[in-house]
């Protein structure tokens, strides 16, 4: 019994400090931080005693990512997780800039599960939209020349037929 308690205590002690690009500090359990492959490698080689700077990620993004990692390190039932993921994504996709930064950061930190989740949500945003709607939503310039556009219509024109 006594050994178990010490183990738990040891686990508790294994906290790591992450510092975002705008110098915000986050103290999380090691197993939460380990969700990121990159941070895990840093911890393996440099230890967890000193704070780990995450230079390319801003505080609000890092906070959101750690929230995800924490939830996913608990090992809850799949249905619970799916529901939580959906809510998490619903919240994130409201702000496109935030959503985009979240994807870049999770890619940078190598959190494959989160990258996959965001990619699926992103694909969902592109579905059932015309090219013009996509351009507007994501603020993309149409840099195609007239000839290229005509060309595209010969290759992809079929996708615009009414179903």
């Amino acid at each position: 019994m006594a050994t178990i308690i010490t183990k738990e205590q040891q686990e508790k002690e294994k906290m790591v400090t992450l510092v975002s690009s705008d110098s915000e500090k986050f103290v999380v359990e090691q197993k939460v931080a380990e969700k990121s492959h990159v941070i895990k490698m840093v911890m393996n080689c440099c230890g967890i005693e000193s704070p780990i700077p995450v230079r390319r990620v801003k505080g609000d993004i890092l906070k959101s990512i750690l929230e995800y990692c924490e939830k996913h390190s608990k090992g809850e039932a799949q249905e619970v997780m799916e529901k939580w993921d959906k809510e998490y994504m619903d919240k994130a996709e409201k702000d496109l800039v935030f959503f985009h930064d979240l994807m870049l950061a999770s890619h940078f930190l190598h959190i494959q599960e989160l990258v996959d989740l965001i990619a699926v949500t992103f694909a969902g945003m592109l579905k059932m939209k015309s090219p013009e709607e996509i351009r507007q939503k994501f603020n993309i310039n149409n840099d195609l020349t007239k000839e290229q556009e005509e060309h595209i219509m010969t290759t992809f024109g079929w996708a615009f037929q009414p179903i």
């Binding site: 592109l126 579905k127 059932m128 939209k129 015309s130 090219p131 996509i134 351009r135 993309i140 310039n141 149409n142 840099d143 195609l144 290229q148 556009e149 595209i152 219509m153 290759t155 992809f156 079929w158 996708a159 615009f160």
Partner: peptide, 11 residues
């Protein structure tokens, strides 16, 4: 079909 439409967005 969505892939084709996305292909029309930009170069």
């Amino acid at each position: 079909v969505d892939l084709a439409r996305v292909g029309c967005v930009n170069s």
